[in-house]
Design a protein around this nucleic acid. Structure first.
Lengths: 195, 195
DNA sequence: ATCGTTGTTGACTATTCGTTCCAGAATATC
DNA sequence: GATATTCTGGAACGAATAGTCAACAACGAT
Protein backbone atom coordinates (compact mmCIF):
# COMPACT_ATOMS: atom_id res chain seq x y z
CA UNK A 1 0.00 0.00 0.00
CA UNK A 2 2.99 2.24 0.32
CA UNK A 3 6.54 2.63 -0.73
CA UNK A 4 8.80 0.31 1.26
CA UNK A 5 11.88 1.52 3.10
CA UNK A 6 14.94 1.43 0.93
CA UNK A 7 17.23 0.51 3.82
CA UNK A 8 17.32 -2.07 6.55
CA UNK A 9 16.90 -0.66 10.05
CA UNK A 10 19.47 -2.98 11.60
CA UNK A 11 22.01 -2.27 8.91
CA UNK A 12 21.99 1.48 9.32
CA UNK A 13 21.71 1.16 13.09
CA UNK A 14 24.89 -0.86 13.17
CA UNK A 15 26.66 1.85 11.22
CA UNK A 16 25.39 4.49 13.61
CA UNK A 17 26.60 2.37 16.51
CA UNK A 18 30.06 2.17 14.98
CA UNK A 19 30.24 5.94 14.65
CA UNK A 20 29.06 6.59 18.19
CA UNK A 21 31.46 3.92 19.39
CA UNK A 22 34.36 5.58 17.66
CA UNK A 23 33.68 9.23 18.41
CA UNK A 24 31.34 9.31 21.38
CA UNK A 25 27.91 10.87 21.63
CA UNK A 26 28.54 14.62 21.69
CA UNK A 27 31.33 14.58 19.15
CA UNK A 28 29.13 12.80 16.61
CA UNK A 29 26.95 15.16 14.59
CA UNK A 30 23.79 14.35 12.70
CA UNK A 31 25.75 15.11 9.56
CA UNK A 32 28.30 12.45 10.51
CA UNK A 33 25.50 9.99 11.08
CA UNK A 34 23.71 10.79 7.84
CA UNK A 35 26.92 10.22 5.92
CA UNK A 36 27.97 7.01 7.63
CA UNK A 37 24.49 5.50 7.66
CA UNK A 38 23.94 6.35 4.00
CA UNK A 39 20.39 7.55 4.54
CA UNK A 40 18.78 10.97 4.50
CA UNK A 41 18.17 13.19 7.48
CA UNK A 42 14.44 12.80 7.05
CA UNK A 43 14.66 9.02 7.12
CA UNK A 44 16.87 9.17 10.17
CA UNK A 45 14.43 11.32 12.14
CA UNK A 46 11.50 9.32 10.85
CA UNK A 47 12.99 6.03 11.95
CA UNK A 48 14.76 6.91 15.20
CA UNK A 49 13.06 10.07 16.46
CA UNK A 50 16.07 12.19 17.29
CA UNK A 51 19.76 11.96 18.09
CA UNK A 52 19.17 10.74 21.62
CA UNK A 53 16.72 8.11 20.41
CA UNK A 54 19.21 6.91 17.84
CA UNK A 55 21.89 6.68 20.50
CA UNK A 56 19.65 4.66 22.76
CA UNK A 57 18.82 2.37 19.87
CA UNK A 58 22.53 2.02 19.15
CA UNK A 59 23.19 1.12 22.78
CA UNK A 60 20.41 -1.47 22.65
CA UNK A 61 21.86 -2.87 19.44
CA UNK A 62 25.30 -3.06 21.03
CA UNK A 63 23.83 -4.77 24.06
CA UNK A 64 21.98 -7.30 21.92
CA UNK A 65 24.69 -8.03 19.43
CA UNK A 66 28.17 -7.15 20.58
CA UNK A 67 27.82 -7.85 24.29
CA UNK A 68 25.73 -10.94 23.74
CA UNK A 69 28.43 -12.42 21.59
CA UNK A 70 31.18 -11.31 23.98
CA UNK A 71 29.68 -13.10 26.95
CA UNK A 72 28.16 -16.02 25.09
CA UNK A 73 30.82 -18.38 26.38
CA UNK A 74 30.12 -17.22 29.93
CA UNK A 75 26.42 -17.89 29.52
CA UNK A 76 26.91 -21.16 27.72
CA UNK A 77 25.50 -24.17 29.57
CA UNK A 78 28.14 -25.71 31.78
CA UNK A 79 30.49 -22.73 31.56
CA UNK A 80 32.57 -22.31 34.69
CA UNK A 81 36.09 -21.31 35.64
CA UNK A 82 37.71 -21.79 32.27
CA UNK A 83 35.11 -19.56 30.61
CA UNK A 84 35.98 -16.74 32.99
CA UNK A 85 39.69 -17.21 32.40
CA UNK A 86 39.15 -17.21 28.64
CA UNK A 87 37.00 -14.12 28.86
CA UNK A 88 39.69 -12.09 30.59
CA UNK A 89 42.39 -13.43 28.33
CA UNK A 90 40.35 -12.02 25.49
CA UNK A 91 40.20 -8.65 27.22
CA UNK A 92 43.96 -8.63 27.60
CA UNK A 93 44.53 -8.99 23.86
CA UNK A 94 42.01 -6.61 22.37
CA UNK A 95 41.53 -6.56 18.64
CA UNK A 96 40.55 -2.96 19.26
CA UNK A 97 43.17 -1.30 17.10
CA UNK A 98 41.29 1.97 16.93
CA UNK A 99 40.89 2.13 20.73
CA UNK A 100 37.14 2.38 20.87
CA UNK A 101 36.90 0.61 24.20
CA UNK A 102 33.40 -0.50 25.13
CA UNK A 103 30.45 1.54 23.90
CA UNK A 104 28.55 1.10 27.15
CA UNK A 105 31.51 2.05 29.30
CA UNK A 106 32.00 5.09 27.12
CA UNK A 107 28.34 6.02 27.42
CA UNK A 108 28.42 5.57 31.19
CA UNK A 109 31.32 7.96 31.46
CA UNK A 110 30.10 10.52 28.96
CA UNK A 111 26.41 10.64 29.84
CA UNK A 112 26.40 9.21 33.34
CA UNK A 113 23.11 9.83 35.09
CA UNK A 114 22.08 12.73 32.86
CA UNK A 115 19.80 10.59 30.72
CA UNK A 116 17.57 8.37 32.89
CA UNK A 117 16.68 6.03 30.04
CA UNK A 118 20.28 5.52 29.10
CA UNK A 119 21.15 5.12 32.75
CA UNK A 120 18.71 2.26 33.00
CA UNK A 121 20.10 0.62 29.88
CA UNK A 122 23.63 0.74 31.22
CA UNK A 123 22.73 -0.58 34.66
CA UNK A 124 20.78 -3.42 33.05
CA UNK A 125 23.75 -4.30 30.88
CA UNK A 126 26.14 -4.36 33.80
CA UNK A 127 23.70 -6.49 35.73
CA UNK A 128 23.57 -8.95 32.88
CA UNK A 129 27.33 -9.18 32.75
CA UNK A 130 27.52 -9.55 36.52
CA UNK A 131 24.93 -12.31 36.45
CA UNK A 132 26.83 -14.14 33.74
CA UNK A 133 29.93 -14.07 35.91
CA UNK A 134 27.90 -15.08 38.93
CA UNK A 135 26.40 -18.13 37.29
CA UNK A 136 29.73 -19.27 35.91
CA UNK A 137 31.28 -18.76 39.34
CA UNK A 138 28.55 -20.68 41.11
CA UNK A 139 29.00 -23.51 38.67
CA UNK A 140 32.74 -23.40 39.22
CA UNK A 141 32.15 -23.62 42.93
CA UNK A 142 29.84 -26.59 42.52
CA UNK A 143 32.51 -28.32 40.50
CA UNK A 144 35.10 -27.60 43.16
CA UNK A 145 37.15 -25.36 40.86
CA UNK A 146 36.73 -22.46 43.26
CA UNK A 147 36.90 -22.56 47.04
CA UNK A 148 33.53 -22.95 48.71
CA UNK A 149 34.09 -20.03 51.06
CA UNK A 150 34.40 -17.54 48.21
CA UNK A 151 31.61 -14.96 47.96
CA UNK A 152 30.62 -15.48 44.37
CA UNK A 153 28.36 -12.42 44.21
CA UNK A 154 31.18 -10.14 45.32
CA UNK A 155 33.54 -11.79 42.92
CA UNK A 156 31.09 -11.31 40.04
CA UNK A 157 30.78 -7.60 40.82
CA UNK A 158 34.51 -7.35 41.08
CA UNK A 159 35.03 -8.94 37.67
CA UNK A 160 32.50 -6.56 36.17
CA UNK A 161 34.39 -3.65 37.66
CA UNK A 162 37.80 -4.81 36.46
CA UNK A 163 36.32 -5.17 32.98
CA UNK A 164 35.42 -1.48 33.06
CA UNK A 165 38.94 -0.65 34.12
CA UNK A 166 40.44 -2.68 31.30
CA UNK A 167 38.10 -1.01 28.83
CA UNK A 168 39.21 2.41 29.99
CA UNK A 169 42.87 1.53 29.66
CA UNK A 170 42.24 0.07 26.21
CA UNK A 171 41.29 3.52 25.00
CA UNK A 172 44.90 4.65 25.20
CA UNK A 173 46.61 1.89 23.23
CA UNK A 174 48.22 0.21 26.22
CA UNK A 175 51.06 -2.24 26.05
CA UNK A 176 49.47 -5.71 25.81
CA UNK A 177 51.97 -6.91 28.38
CA UNK A 178 50.52 -4.47 30.90
CA UNK A 179 47.00 -5.71 30.26
CA UNK A 180 48.20 -9.27 30.54
CA UNK A 181 49.80 -8.70 33.91
CA UNK A 182 46.62 -7.04 35.17
CA UNK A 183 44.53 -9.97 34.03
CA UNK A 184 46.90 -12.40 35.70
CA UNK A 185 46.49 -10.65 39.04
CA UNK A 186 42.74 -10.38 38.53
CA UNK A 187 42.41 -14.09 37.93
CA UNK A 188 44.52 -14.90 40.97
CA UNK A 189 41.36 -14.39 43.00
CA UNK A 190 40.14 -17.59 41.36
CA UNK A 191 42.78 -19.80 42.89
CA UNK A 192 41.74 -23.40 43.36
CA UNK A 193 40.67 -24.39 46.87
CA UNK A 194 43.41 -25.79 49.09
CA UNK A 195 43.74 -29.49 48.58
CA UNK B 1 53.76 49.40 33.15
CA UNK B 2 50.42 47.91 32.27
CA UNK B 3 47.05 47.10 33.61
CA UNK B 4 47.15 44.00 35.84
CA UNK B 5 44.82 41.06 35.38
CA UNK B 6 41.64 41.41 37.37
CA UNK B 7 41.39 37.69 38.10
CA UNK B 8 43.64 34.97 39.43
CA UNK B 9 44.57 32.36 36.86
CA UNK B 10 44.36 29.47 39.30
CA UNK B 11 41.00 30.59 40.61
CA UNK B 12 39.28 30.66 37.26
CA UNK B 13 41.11 27.53 36.13
CA UNK B 14 39.71 25.63 39.07
CA UNK B 15 36.22 26.72 38.11
CA UNK B 16 36.79 25.61 34.53
CA UNK B 17 38.05 22.28 35.82
CA UNK B 18 34.88 21.83 37.86
CA UNK B 19 32.71 22.46 34.82
CA UNK B 20 34.66 20.09 32.59
CA UNK B 21 34.62 17.53 35.38
CA UNK B 22 30.87 17.74 35.69
CA UNK B 23 29.83 17.88 32.04
CA UNK B 24 32.74 16.52 30.03
CA UNK B 25 34.70 18.22 27.28
CA UNK B 26 32.34 18.28 24.30
CA UNK B 27 29.22 19.04 26.32
CA UNK B 28 30.85 22.11 27.85
CA UNK B 29 30.56 25.22 25.68
CA UNK B 30 32.69 28.32 25.78
CA UNK B 31 29.60 30.13 26.97
CA UNK B 32 29.31 27.73 29.92
CA UNK B 33 32.95 28.35 30.74
CA UNK B 34 32.67 32.12 30.45
CA UNK B 35 29.75 32.09 32.85
CA UNK B 36 31.23 29.74 35.42
CA UNK B 37 34.69 31.30 35.35
CA UNK B 38 33.27 34.79 35.67
CA UNK B 39 35.59 36.26 33.05
CA UNK B 40 35.09 37.50 29.52
CA UNK B 41 35.57 35.47 26.38
CA UNK B 42 38.48 37.66 25.39
CA UNK B 43 40.25 37.09 28.67
CA UNK B 44 39.66 33.37 28.37
CA UNK B 45 41.18 33.16 24.90
CA UNK B 46 43.96 35.53 25.92
CA UNK B 47 44.92 33.45 28.92
CA UNK B 48 44.36 29.88 27.75
CA UNK B 49 44.54 30.02 23.96
CA UNK B 50 41.46 28.04 23.04
CA UNK B 51 39.06 25.47 24.42
CA UNK B 52 41.51 22.62 24.01
CA UNK B 53 44.26 24.60 25.72
CA UNK B 54 41.96 25.40 28.60
CA UNK B 55 41.03 21.75 28.93
CA UNK B 56 44.66 20.70 29.01
CA UNK B 57 45.34 23.33 31.64
CA UNK B 58 42.37 22.02 33.63
CA UNK B 59 43.73 18.49 33.40
CA UNK B 60 47.13 19.68 34.59
CA UNK B 61 45.48 21.53 37.44
CA UNK B 62 43.53 18.42 38.39
CA UNK B 63 46.70 16.38 38.24
CA UNK B 64 48.59 18.83 40.43
CA UNK B 65 45.90 19.50 42.96
CA UNK B 66 43.22 16.85 43.15
CA UNK B 67 45.29 13.78 42.32
CA UNK B 68 48.24 14.93 44.33
CA UNK B 69 46.08 15.21 47.40
CA UNK B 70 44.32 11.92 46.68
CA UNK B 71 47.52 9.90 46.58
CA UNK B 72 49.46 11.90 49.15
CA UNK B 73 49.09 9.18 51.75
CA UNK B 74 50.39 6.64 49.23
CA UNK B 75 53.44 8.77 48.51
CA UNK B 76 54.03 9.65 52.14
CA UNK B 77 57.36 8.41 53.51
CA UNK B 78 56.94 5.00 55.06
CA UNK B 79 53.54 4.37 53.50
CA UNK B 80 52.93 0.70 52.85
CA UNK B 81 50.08 -1.78 53.01
CA UNK B 82 47.76 0.22 55.22
CA UNK B 83 48.00 3.23 52.92
CA UNK B 84 46.82 1.10 50.01
CA UNK B 85 43.98 -0.34 52.04
CA UNK B 86 42.94 3.14 53.15
CA UNK B 87 43.13 4.42 49.62
CA UNK B 88 40.69 1.82 48.31
CA UNK B 89 38.41 2.22 51.28
CA UNK B 90 38.17 5.86 50.28
CA UNK B 91 37.25 4.88 46.74
CA UNK B 92 34.47 2.66 48.04
CA UNK B 93 32.77 5.52 49.86
CA UNK B 94 32.95 8.35 47.37
CA UNK B 95 31.84 11.79 48.49
CA UNK B 96 31.04 12.20 44.80
CA UNK B 97 27.34 12.95 45.16
CA UNK B 98 27.08 14.42 41.67
CA UNK B 99 28.76 11.40 40.07
CA UNK B 100 31.60 13.22 38.38
CA UNK B 101 33.96 10.27 38.61
CA UNK B 102 37.59 11.11 37.90
CA UNK B 103 38.35 13.89 35.44
CA UNK B 104 41.28 12.03 33.96
CA UNK B 105 39.35 8.81 33.53
CA UNK B 106 36.59 10.80 31.89
CA UNK B 107 39.06 12.49 29.58
CA UNK B 108 40.68 9.18 28.68
CA UNK B 109 37.33 7.75 27.66
CA UNK B 110 36.01 10.82 25.88
CA UNK B 111 39.13 11.96 24.03
CA UNK B 112 41.21 8.80 24.02
CA UNK B 113 44.12 9.07 21.61
CA UNK B 114 42.58 11.82 19.52
CA UNK B 115 44.62 14.55 21.21
CA UNK B 116 48.29 13.55 21.49
CA UNK B 117 49.08 16.16 24.14
CA UNK B 118 46.19 15.08 26.30
CA UNK B 119 47.12 11.47 25.70
CA UNK B 120 50.54 12.14 27.12
CA UNK B 121 49.12 13.91 30.15
CA UNK B 122 46.84 10.99 30.93
CA UNK B 123 49.53 8.36 30.52
CA UNK B 124 51.84 10.37 32.75
CA UNK B 125 49.17 10.62 35.41
CA UNK B 126 48.47 6.90 35.36
CA UNK B 127 52.18 6.24 35.56
CA UNK B 128 52.43 8.43 38.62
CA UNK B 129 49.59 6.60 40.31
CA UNK B 130 51.07 3.26 39.37
CA UNK B 131 54.44 4.28 40.76
CA UNK B 132 52.86 5.40 44.00
CA UNK B 133 51.27 1.99 44.36
CA UNK B 134 54.51 0.32 43.39
CA UNK B 135 56.58 2.10 45.99
CA UNK B 136 54.06 1.45 48.74
CA UNK B 137 53.93 -2.19 47.69
CA UNK B 138 57.67 -2.55 47.65
CA UNK B 139 57.83 -1.05 51.10
CA UNK B 140 55.10 -3.40 52.26
CA UNK B 141 57.09 -6.30 50.89
CA UNK B 142 60.21 -5.14 52.68
CA UNK B 143 58.27 -4.97 55.90
CA UNK B 144 56.93 -8.47 55.34
CA UNK B 145 53.33 -7.26 55.03
CA UNK B 146 53.10 -8.76 51.56
CA UNK B 147 54.47 -12.08 50.38
CA UNK B 148 57.92 -11.86 48.83
CA UNK B 149 56.91 -13.79 45.72
CA UNK B 150 54.31 -11.22 44.73
CA UNK B 151 55.06 -9.27 41.54
CA UNK B 152 54.70 -5.74 42.86
CA UNK B 153 54.83 -4.10 39.43
CA UNK B 154 51.93 -6.19 38.19
CA UNK B 155 50.02 -5.52 41.35
CA UNK B 156 50.56 -1.78 41.00
CA UNK B 157 49.23 -1.84 37.44
CA UNK B 158 46.33 -3.92 38.58
CA UNK B 159 45.41 -1.47 41.33
CA UNK B 160 45.59 1.38 38.86
CA UNK B 161 43.22 -0.49 36.58
CA UNK B 162 40.72 -1.33 39.30
CA UNK B 163 40.70 2.34 40.26
CA UNK B 164 39.56 3.18 36.73
CA UNK B 165 36.83 0.60 37.00
CA UNK B 166 35.61 2.00 40.31
CA UNK B 167 35.62 5.49 38.85
CA UNK B 168 33.49 4.37 35.94
CA UNK B 169 30.98 2.69 38.21
CA UNK B 170 30.88 5.77 40.44
CA UNK B 171 29.40 7.71 37.54
CA UNK B 172 26.13 5.83 37.90
CA UNK B 173 25.45 6.32 41.61
CA UNK B 174 26.20 2.75 42.60
CA UNK B 175 25.18 1.14 45.86
CA UNK B 176 28.07 1.72 48.31
CA UNK B 177 27.74 -1.88 49.38
CA UNK B 178 28.58 -2.99 45.86
CA UNK B 179 31.68 -0.82 45.78
CA UNK B 180 32.66 -2.08 49.20
CA UNK B 181 32.45 -5.71 48.14
CA UNK B 182 34.53 -4.97 45.05
CA UNK B 183 37.20 -3.30 47.16
CA UNK B 184 37.25 -6.23 49.55
CA UNK B 185 37.96 -8.65 46.73
CA UNK B 186 40.52 -6.28 45.23
CA UNK B 187 42.42 -6.06 48.49
CA UNK B 188 42.36 -9.82 48.92
CA UNK B 189 45.33 -9.88 46.56
CA UNK B 190 47.27 -8.26 49.40
CA UNK B 191 46.92 -11.18 51.76
CA UNK B 192 49.72 -11.50 54.25
CA UNK B 193 52.39 -14.08 53.48
CA UNK B 194 51.83 -17.51 54.95
CA UNK B 195 53.26 -17.69 58.40
C1' DA C 1 49.66 64.62 34.39
C1' DT C 2 50.94 62.10 30.35
C1' DC C 3 52.06 58.19 27.79
C1' DG C 4 52.69 53.44 26.62
C1' DT C 5 51.11 49.09 27.58
C1' DT C 6 48.06 45.71 28.72
C1' DG C 7 43.40 43.90 30.26
C1' DT C 8 38.46 44.16 29.59
C1' DT C 9 34.34 44.31 27.16
C1' DG C 10 30.65 43.04 24.16
C1' DA C 11 29.41 43.10 19.60
C1' DC C 12 30.55 40.46 15.62
C1' DT C 13 32.01 36.78 12.44
C1' DA C 14 31.18 32.43 9.89
C1' DT C 15 30.12 27.94 10.74
C1' DT C 16 27.84 24.13 12.55
C1' DC C 17 24.37 22.29 15.36
C1' DG C 18 19.84 19.47 15.78
C1' DT C 19 15.56 19.58 13.77
C1' DT C 20 11.59 20.50 10.55
C1' DC C 21 9.25 20.57 6.35
C1' DC C 22 7.70 19.88 1.76
C1' DA C 23 7.81 18.81 -3.09
C1' DG C 24 8.66 14.86 -5.78
C1' DA C 25 9.52 9.89 -6.35
C1' DA C 26 8.24 5.14 -5.67
C1' DT C 27 5.25 1.46 -4.59
C1' DA C 28 0.86 -1.57 -3.28
C1' DT C 29 -3.89 -1.80 -3.89
C1' DC C 30 -7.83 -1.25 -6.63
C1' DG D 1 -3.65 3.03 -15.07
C1' DA D 2 -5.47 5.73 -11.08
C1' DT D 3 -5.08 6.51 -6.31
C1' DA D 4 -3.56 6.46 -1.71
C1' DT D 5 0.25 6.04 1.05
C1' DT D 6 4.84 6.14 2.26
C1' DC D 7 9.68 7.24 1.63
C1' DT D 8 13.42 10.32 -0.16
C1' DG D 9 16.19 14.26 -0.95
C1' DG D 10 17.46 18.65 -0.06
C1' DA D 11 16.47 23.19 1.26
C1' DA D 12 15.69 25.84 5.19
C1' DC D 13 15.06 26.93 10.24
C1' DG D 14 16.63 29.33 14.48
C1' DA D 15 19.75 28.50 17.96
C1' DA D 16 24.18 27.58 19.45
C1' DT D 17 28.95 26.89 18.34
C1' DA D 18 34.20 28.35 18.64
C1' DG D 19 36.71 32.11 17.91
C1' DT D 20 37.94 37.33 16.57
C1' DC D 21 38.41 42.18 16.97
C1' DA D 22 38.48 46.99 17.85
C1' DA D 23 37.10 50.41 21.03
C1' DC D 24 37.60 51.46 25.79
C1' DA D 25 39.53 51.28 30.62
C1' DA D 26 43.11 50.90 34.03
C1' DC D 27 47.46 50.75 35.55
C1' DG D 28 53.05 51.67 35.95
C1' DA D 29 56.72 54.50 34.61
C1' DT D 30 58.29 58.86 33.61
Amino acid sequence: MARPKSFDREDVLEKAMDTFWERGYEATSIQDLVECMGINRGSLYDTFGDKRGLFQAAIAFYDNKVVRKAIAHLEAPGASKQAIVDHFQGLAAPEDADCRGCLITNAAVEIGIRDPDLHRQIVANWQRVEDAFFKALTRAQDKGEVAAEVDTRSLARYFTCVMQGLRVMSKLRPDPIVLQSIVTVTLSTLQAPEA
